[in-house]
Every structure is written in C-alpha cells, then in structure tokens.
Design a protein around this nucleic acid. Structure first.
Lengths: 106, 106
DNA sequence: TGGCTATAGGTAGCCTGGCAACATGTATGG
DNA sequence: CCATACATGTTGCCAGGCTACCTATAGCCA
C-alpha cells in the first residue's frame, strides 16, 4: 500500500486507536499494525510528530510514567478529541463513498 | 469534505473518469463533480497539472482539437494507464479496508 | 456597446504533512 | 559484549493539492 495515501487520514487513525484505552507512542504503532492486519507499519518519524500535533490541537492529553525502567508518554483522548474523531469518521464515510463511486467498477 | 484528503488518490479518480471515453480537462472536472454527487469541485490548478503529470508518466495520451472556436486538449487512457488504474483500484480497496477497520465502529 | 457568465487552457509559488535518517537511552537474552 | 526489542524524539526533504493569477472565445442580456 502506498504509504503516502495516508495523508490527511492519519489523525483519524490515531484518535481511533486511543479511543478505548490510553496508549503510549510505541504501543500506538503496534496497535495500528495489529488493527490493520500488518498493513500499517508506521515509522516513528510519522507517529511522534503526529502525536505532538494532536496534543497541541487539544485532541490528546499526555502524561509521563515509567514502566520497567523505561519512560513512557501516554496519550489519551480529550473530549475535543472525541468530537474530532466523530467528525473524522463522518468525513471518512463521505470520502470513501465518493472515491468508491468515482472508481466505479461497482 | 477536506479537500486535502484527496492526496494520493486523485490520479486514480482521473484515470477512472477517462476510462470509458476520452475527455478534455474541463469536462473531467465536470465529470468528477457529477460522478461524486457534487462533492468534488476541483480547481483547475489541481486538475491541469495532474493531467500533465499523468501524461508524462505515460498513463494518458493527449490530442488537440477545436470545438466551437475553443481549443480542447483531450486525454485518453493509454494501455499503461489501464494497468495503473487496475492497480490503483486494488490499492484503494486495501486502503479503504484498512482505514475502515482501524476506525472501527463497524 | 459593454459586461457578465460559461467554456477552455495554463502557470508560479505556498504549505502541509508523511517519511527517511539520525540521535539517545534502557532492558534482555545469547 | 553485542544484538535486538523497547521507547522517545528531531531535522529536513519533497510530493502534490491549492490559491491566485493570466489568457482567450462564445453567447446572452441590458
């Protein structure tokens, strides 16, 4: 899958993956891989900046902890993030319908 | 719909729309609008450079004509373009499945 | 006559954001 | 002691969609 196709959809995926439980960056990468059947294998240079962007936008809150001698920064969905996720889901539905429609071959 | 979400998918849409009949740029914009139920209203600054890119890539062939005193540049799908379109359709299916899967709420 | 709209083509340059490459450090197992 | 997994980050490249602009013809209405 052309990784570049992610453009504009990554935020939704991240928000969705931390919806049920807060996760730290590394775990988010693994969760995305797992939830996509291995299709998504996102580099840290993609995820970490995205997380900071989402926190800055007010969609995620982060907190540090230490587990087994390793520092973790755990992100959880804010209420604004929850709203944003709902909006993104709606946008995705529209987008997917439009693209599938134009690609035709229905 | 966030226009920016198109990133990486526009080429597929253009190839799909000229699959059955060759069309000129302006008509492609209208066809995309029509086929998307008005959701897609792409500016010329998006379409024309994309068409040149696709022709340069060997996916489209173009020819000039004059209709009603107006110059038209008509694009048609090459055989390489046909293959590319098929590949894009497959990629889209995978991509859509992945995103829908991660967004969950199935 | 003048002006607006639709039709038709195009370019220059901005800006976003995913990615490659790099840097840092801990824990674990062979 | 070294490789690998775990864990976090930054810098800077670059593709590509968009804004804003430019040119030109045809047709209609006032």
């Amino acid at each position: 899958m052309k990784a570049d196709a992610l453009r504009g959809h990554l935020d939704s995926l991240i928000l969705a993956v931390v919806e049920k439980q807060p996760l730290h960056g590394y775990a988010i990468i693994e969760a995305l891989s797992a939830r996509s059947g291995g299709e998504l294998d996102l580099p840290t240079g993609t995820i970490y900046p995205a997380l900071r962007r989402l926190e800055k936008a007010g969609y995620l809150d982060s907190s540090w902890s230490e587990v087994g001698g390793r520092k973790r920064r755990t992100y959880e969905l804010s209420s604004a993030g929850r709203n944003a996720l709902a909006a993104h889901r709606q946008e995705w539905r529209t987008f997917a319908k439009v693209v599938s429609g134009v690609l035709g071959e229905a």
